[in-house]
């Protein structure tokens, strides 16, 4: 089983089903290996899937698309992306039924806004996955919603029949190869006051939907878009711990703090999120760039290069020496 490099709680799962949804998209069903219920999640949430690819620990975020109430299994859909960092190719080519993977707990950076009088959803391509869970939830609570879903073609579109059968007129599908386009301006102009808009899809589509809505005077608070928080990762680098007389390597998906701990050096910490200041560490010298990701140090301190918060910050360059 994959050895996690960090201390956040994880869920061990077994792949119990893989379905070819389209020629490019596969759906994976994950069930917990310990048989306990999975954490409840809400529409819009994602998990980070950890994949052990040789010596590389890959971590990719994927939206949960199953029904939010279901705690026996999670479903995700993955589109094959030959130009990506390799996670989707690993999922498509190496993961089989029975494979063991490790998940983060669900994280929701794309939540439903409960103040909305109506929910207007836009999806493009694989961006349909979070909206599937959102609609399942909205339908359960009896909330007003509609989906506008753009796909390349009938064959390339994922879950088209399922959507038509389940939600009927609340779903409109637009196929590029048929010359169909979302009548965005007309749609946005016709919405009742209090409507909230959600969009998930290719960058160009998200920008088009959001900027059109802004141009029509929609309040910024009513516009929601999916943004994945990339796991705090980067290139590997070395750190010299002067007080401990040790040189350590920080892996691509490991924090400096985790690497310090892995070397057996007792370092202070509290929040592990760059806010509390407990792990503040003095920088003795460096030749390169400190990548500050914390909320604790001031802009001047970031520029000064005298301190670093190893729980979230990274380094690029030749040498970093810490007073630890």
């Amino acid at each position: 089983m994959t050895k996690s490099a960090d201390r956040t709680p994880k869920i061990d799962v077994r792949v119990t089903q893989i379905v070819d949804v389209t020629s490019e998209i596969k759906r994976f069903r994950f069930e917990p290996t310990d048989g306990k219920p999975l954490p409840v999640f809400a529409g819009g949430a994602h998990v980070v899937v950890e994949m052990e690819d040789g010596d590389t620990l890959r971590r990719n975020p994927y939206s949960l698309m199953s029904s939010p109430g279901a705690t026996d299994a999670y479903n995700i859909s993955v589109r094959r992306d030959p130009g990506g960092r390799g996670g989707s190719m690993f999922m498509h080519d190496r993961v089989t039924v029975g494979s063991l993977l490790r998940l983060s707990h669900p994280v929701n950076l794309f939540p439903i806004d409960r103040r909305a009088r109506k929910h207007l959803l836009f999806a493009g391509g694989i961006g349909i996955t979070p909206t599937l869970a959102m609609m399942s939830e909205l339908a359960r609570y009896g909330d007003a919603f509609e989906l506008n879903y753009a796909v390349r073609s009938e064959n390339d579109g994922a879950y088209l029949d399922q959507l038509r059968n389940t939600y009927g007129k609340r779903v409109s599908i637009y196929r590029d190869d048929q010359g169909e386009q979302i009548p965005l301006t007309t749609l946005l102009a016709a919405q009742p006051l209090g409507t909230h808009l959600y969009v998930c899809g290719p960058g160009g589509m998200m920008n088009w939907v959001l900027s059109t809505a802004e141009g029509l005077g929609w309040p910024a608070q009513n516009l929601h878009s999916e943004r994945f928080l990339a796991p705090p990762s980067g290139s590997p680098y070395e750190v010299r711990l002067a007080a401990s007389d040790l040189s350590i390597k920080v892996g691509p998906h490991q924090s400096m703090l985790e690497a310090i701990e892995a070397a057996g050096v007792d370092a202070p910490y509290l929040c592990r999120g760059g806010a509390c200041g407990q792990c503040e560490t003095r920088v003795i010298s460096f030749d390169g760039t400190l990548l500050h990701n914390d909320h604790y140090l001031t802009d001047d301190e970031h520029a000064g290069g005298q301190k670093v918060m190893p729980c979230v910050s990274r380094f690029e360059g030749r040498e970093l020496v810490l007073d630890r």
């Binding site: 956040t8 999640f41 707990h105 669900p106 929040c271 760059g274 806010a275 909320h295």
Partner: peptide
């Protein structure tokens, strides 16, 4: 309070503080 708010906005399910 600025630091505490930023931290809390990132609070994760399953990781109470």
């Amino acid at each position: 309070f600025e630091r505490a708010l930023k931290f809390l906005l990132n609070l994760r399910q399953g990781q109470p503080v």
